[in-house]
Design a protein around this nucleic acid. Sequence first.
DNA 1: GCAATGACGCTCT
DNA 2: CAGAGCGCCATTG
Length: 115
Amino acid sequence: MPPRAQGSRWSRVYAVVGRIPHGCVATYGQVAELAGLPGAARQVGYALHALPRGSRVPWQRVVNARGGVSPRAAWGAEQAQRARLEAEGVSFDANGRVDLARYRWRPGARRAVRR
DNA sequence: GCAATGACGCTCT
DNA sequence: CAGAGCGCCATTG
């Protein structure tokens, strides 16, 4: 039962996700920590799941710790996310995972892509 | 207030 | 690196 929880801490999660720069990706755990919910990575994914389509929240930039897109209820969304990230310059491997070592969002780092 | 759920994370094998 | 198991917390019913 997908809850709504509009006035909950989820808004905090959305705010953090919205701060993810273009061409970068963040893990659930990272977003959770930045949102003030350390260890509540699950709730982050849960919050994103409740996001309505058309939301300005770049939920597509949020991936799991392995840099892969988690299988969600919306079939095809996984494909859309990958396509969108590729359009931003994020490369996916044959397994559909991104190189976190390279695209992982570094809060505070000026250069998104460390090189 | 208790129990169940969930787009996850971490550790071990 | 891949797969499996256990634990984390927050929100809902």
